[in-house]
């Protein structure tokens, strides 16, 4: 086994160990810290699979934003304990373990018996990449080749927001959520937010811009912008907006709306839904990406902030 193979094996064992710790840890807080570390390690695994775009998404969303969501939830759940007697009995746990092991073994067997060479859509994507004008095949797949998936995924985000907001008690409807934040202003956190947030804006936009040709894109860049807004709210330099704010709602629907309009205009001009005219494919993709970025940057923090918890003014 060469050095890189040893690194891969070590990485795999580390990922599994931390996943096991996350499942087994007694304290919720410890489990969540484990989960964040797990997300970061997993993104290294993705980088080793040459999926840099996925690695960035996993690090930003799987590790970072989900981590904030879980930690703030755990802090609010500290009082509400689950009774110990709700733990399943030993035979039941053994059965669950056997079932899980069976699932893992079956999946492992499938992986080992995959056909060689693997089927691939890469040649097809490569052949049509020139028509989109972008250089990053993943961005092309997301926005052009499988645009319905991406559009529906944006709609799912919107549905999730609607679902989260619907959980507000009646008296708070139209009010503002309370984003996770420090109990009182802390100098160190304020300093970080003041310095990092503008730099993060540059990095996030840059990531969307280069996403057309290199690893990056609306999801990764949007997640960075979202993180910057969350840091600013955590440092108490800004508050979550009321859910009824028109600008907020416009920003939330901007991405899917522009995407839909582009698709519909394709139906008119080129005779097929989402048929982007070839001459304008690249600028169109960039415009769609820009609005998607805006929506993602606003949606993720609002999902983390949760339902309104303040009466409307």
């Amino acid at each position: 086994m060469n050095a890189l193979g040893a690194v891969d094996l070590g990485l795999a064992l580390l990922v599994l160990a931390i996943a096991g710790w996350t499942i087994a840890a007694r304290e919720a807080f410890a489990a969540i810290v484990g989960y964040v570390a797990y997300g970061l390690l997993l993104s290294i695994v993705w980088a080793r699979l040459f999926a840099v775009d996925v690695a960035m998404t996993e690090a930003a969303i799987g590790g970072g934003v989900t981590g904030v969501l879980l930690i703030s939830a755990a802090a609010r759940l500290r009082q509400a304990q689950t009774a110990e007697d709700e733990r399943p009995t030993l035979p039941l746990r053994l059965m669950a373990a056997a079932l899980s092991a069976l699932a893992a073994i079956a999946l492992g067997a499938v992986i080992l018996s995959l056909p060689e060479p693997g089927p691939s859509l890469a040649p097809l994507a490569a052949k049509n990449l020139a028509a989109t004008g972008v250089g990053n095949p993943i961005t092309a797949v997301l926005i052009a080749f499988r645009s319905f998936d991406t559009l529906l995924e944006k709609v799912v985000l919107l549905l999730a927001i609607i679902g989260v907001w619907s959980l507000a008690p009646d008296r708070y409807w139209g009010g503002a959520p309370i984003a996770p934040r420090a109990a009182r202003p802390v100098g160190a956190l304020t300093f970080l937010a003041q310095l990092v947030a503008p730099i993060g804006v540059v990095v996030g936009v840059h990531m969307v811009w280069v996403g057309a040709d290199e690893p990056g894109g609306a999801f990764q860049g949007g997640a960075i912008l979202a993180a910057m807004w969350m840091i600013v709210m955590m440092a108490r330099l800004s508050e979550a907006p009321p859910v009824g704010a028109p600008w907020l709602r416009a920003a939330l629907v901007a991405g899917p709306a522009v995407f839909l309009i582009a698709g519909a205009s394709g139906a008119v001009t080129s005779g097929a839904f989402f048929a982007l005219p070839q001459a304008f494919a690249k600028p169109l993709i960039l415009i769609i990406e820009a609005f998607m970025t805006l929506s993602i940057a606003v949606t993720l923090p609002m999902l983390v902030a949760g339902p309104p918890r303040r009466a409307p003014l």
Binding site: L49, F50, A51, D53, V54, T57, G118, S120, L121, A122, A125, P137, I138, A140, V141, L142, F145, R146, D149, T150, E153, G217, F219
Partner: peptide, 11 residues
């Protein structure tokens, strides 16, 4: 790597 599954994993 095949870009299609990667894009789907991102979503």
């Amino acid at each position: 790597a095949d870009p299609v599954p990667q894009a789907m994993v991102i979503t």
